[in-house]
Design a protein around this nucleic acid. Structure first.
Lengths: 144, 144
DNA sequence: GGATGTTAGATGCAGTTGCATCGAGTTATG
DNA sequence: CATAACTCGATGCAACTGCATCTAACATCC
């Protein structure tokens, strides 16, 4: 009789939790040290920047970011308050809205990227060769 | 001129964030569905069970779990209130205390493991071969 | 031994997250 | 068209997290 999750699976799970926590705390600390907003702001701004002129419906952004609905609702509020996005009424569906990044939002995203990218390099790039990073990315993709 | 974090590094970072979020949400959902406490309870109970009769000082547990100090302080409070651990005065250092798992704590950990292990299998084991899981664990270990 | 610095752990407060639920609008069914 | 079922997004409330700070107890240095 074989144990359900084998040793390697458990090791991978533990590694995933720990590595993510370590890397994330480095990245969040760097952002905070520069007085920049948290990572979730970046993710949202980036998705909206990629979406361009059309913007995104909250539920689309929610899925792209793997965010809970209530969570995104509040994130959007804060981003709008900060002037980084606009919430526009949606023509096609009177319940809904369309989120669009503002110029200030694009600038903030760019500014965050300077710090963010350095932190990624520190937390991941410096610890893996390019081929290791590629392998890791591929293995992680299988978990989604 | 080469871009600072290369493409593979960024892909690994994104994969890490997403995979962890997906896997974690599966696991937490399974625990919640069974009316069991959150994962952090399991981690603490497991560390204390491994520590055995000697128990652990809060700051030791804190480091083992990669938890913030204030965070662990409150987790220990809740575990103690639930009767899963005991907080004993520390002989060697009057400021400190020693945390020890109780019998109820051991039982809870075992009970959580039944659900937890199935969830790990579902979120990780089912998506990777054994050798892939081994590779993944090894790559992730380099990030700590 | 006494001043100074450091470490262990707790806690008040503000911000964030999770959960449940709501209200408004849309779609499906008859 | 009426009603039932569902989707979109917001929100009250409770739990949790992060930050700063506090108290008490070592440790160090003279």
């Amino acid at each position: 009789m074989k144990s359900k999750p084998d040793q390697a699976t458990v090791a991978a799970w533990i590694g995933l939790s720990r590595a993510q926590r370590v890397a994330m705390s480095v990245v969040e600390a760097r952002l905070k040290a520069e007085g920049l907003p948290a990572l979730s702001w970046y993710d949202a701004l980036w998705e909206l920047e990629k979406a361009g002129e059309a913007g995104l419906r909250p539920y689309e952004l929610e899925r792209a970011m793997l965010f809970e609905q209530y969570n995104l609702s509040r994130l959007a509020q804060r981003l709008a308050e900060a002037g980084l996005i606009n919430k526009e009424a949606c023509e096609a569906d009177a319940r809904g809205q369309t989120l669009k990044i503002t110029q200030a939002g694009r600038e903030m995203r760019r500014r965050m990227w300077e710090t963010y990218s350095r932190a990624i390099e520190e937390a991941v790039g410096a610890k893996l060769s390019v081929s290791e990073a590629r392998s890791l990315a591929e293995l992680l993709r299988k978990l989604e």
